[in-house]
């Protein structure tokens, strides 16, 4: 079954096509059932509330493209959040300095994953499963679980709670800039192509002259940095930092990536798809709540959506493969 996914001509736009359909369907339904769903304000709120998951998910995409996975991002977000609080409150650093240090910390956390994965050649699933516990544990140990950092200066909080002209939330530019950056990196650079090559075949990529270890290491470092950035956005939005921040975010991010059509085995996928995945999940949650439906339904439908998107993709590939086969069969009759 891995052959069905990883081989064949890249038809990534099709899964995105499916998601656009889902998104339109969601909008059509929730516009009828939800109170104030189809409003500009709500659209901007959805952007605002999906920033953290979105940041994690777009950076998860290159990780998954290389055939890896990063389960530690949610925990790293928590660790970065409390370290930011610690640096700002206890070490007395001005918040921009603390914020910069937090990004570095995120990069270091990602670096630990990268080192274990590339140097010791351990499977990413296991490494990040371990660091998932480790980072969360460190966050709890630093704060003894109890410490809660609050009272951040308004200059910082504005990044998560403020609005720019026209009701555009302050985190939207950050979120869009990062997403655009990742799109360029993954789809328009040699580095991006190298990631796909590694995802298809690390050995092949190595023979093609790609510095596989260095590329993979960078991907995890960047994913860690994204967790640091998401931590800042989180702290600014919620106004507090505690050791439990971001629990379970890794699953939401991975769900969005996979829903967006990126193959979990690596090699194929797109950041556009991930963005659509983030959007369709965020709209689903928001729309159900505005329709006064219980939150559990959002979880159940997320599962259904995942299975639906995957079956659609696989089904389509089988269908087109069969058609291609019958076409070649028909055309091969005459010349040979």
């Amino acid at each position: 079954m891995s052959t069905a996914i990883s081989v064949g001509k890249p038809s990534w736009w099709r899964s995105e096509f499916f998601l656009v359909g889902v998104l339109l369907l969601e909008i059509a339904i929730f516009s009828r059932t939800g109170s104030n769903f189809a409003t500009a304000i709500n659209a901007l709120e959805i952007v605002r509330l999906s920033a953290e998951i979105g940041l994690l998910a777009v950076w998860m995409t290159p990780v998954v493209l290389t055939g890896g996975i990063d389960l530690s991002v949610g925990s790293l977000l928590g660790l970065c959040a409390v370290c930011f609080g610690k640096l700002w409150r206890d070490a007395g650093l001005p918040w921009p300095v603390a914020a910069a240090a937090t990004l570095v910390l995120g990069a270091l956390g990602g670096g630990l994953n990268a080192m274990l994965i590339t140097r010791l050649r351990l499977p990413p699933l296991i490494v990040t499963l371990g660091s998932l516990s480790l980072f969360r544990g460190l966050a709890e140990a630093i704060t003894r679980g109890v410490d809660n950092f609050t009272g951040f200066p308004s200059g910082f909080l504005d990044w998560g709670q403020g609005y720019l002209v026209g009701g555009i939330p302050a985190q939207a530019p950050v979120w869009i800039a990062v997403a655009a950056g990742v799109i360029v990196l993954v789809h328009y650079t040699v580095f991006g192509r190298a990631l796909r090559a590694i995802g298809h075949s690390p050995e092949g990529a190595r023979y093609a002259g790609i510095a596989v270890n260095r590329c993979v290491a960078w991907v995890y470092v960047l994913s860690g940095t994204a967790a640091g950035l998401a931590a800042l956005v989180y702290v600014a939005r919620v106004g507090q930092a505690k050791a439990d921040a971001g629990t379970g975010y890794e699953l939401l991010a991975i769900t969005a990536v996979v829903l967006g059509g990126t193959s979990i085995f690596g090699g194929t996928g797109s950041v556009w798809g991930t963005l659509l995945g983030v959007a369709s999940l965020a709209v689903l949650r928001n729309g159900l709540q505005l329709s006064d439906q219980p939150g559990e339904l959002a979880g159940i439908l997320t599962g259904v959506l995942l299975l639906g998107a995957l079956s659609a993709e696989v089904g389509f590939k089988k269908f087109s493969a069969r058609r291609r086969a019958s076409v070649t069969l028909a055309s091969s009759n005459s010349p040979s």
Binding site: M1, S2, A4, I5, I69, L251, I254, T255, V258, S263, I264, F265, P294, E296, L297, G299, I300, T302, G303, V304, L306, L307, L310, S311, V314, G315
Partner: peptide, 27 residues
């Protein structure tokens, strides 16, 4: 069945069923 017959990646299939069963039970 989803993994073997439809050829879907198991990590994603079981992520979906993980969420769905748990939420249904909670509901």
């Amino acid at each position: 069945w989803l993994v073997a017959a439809l050829g879907l990646p198991s990590i994603v299939v079981t992520l979906a069923t993980f969420v769905s069963w748990r939420e249904t039970l909670r509901w």
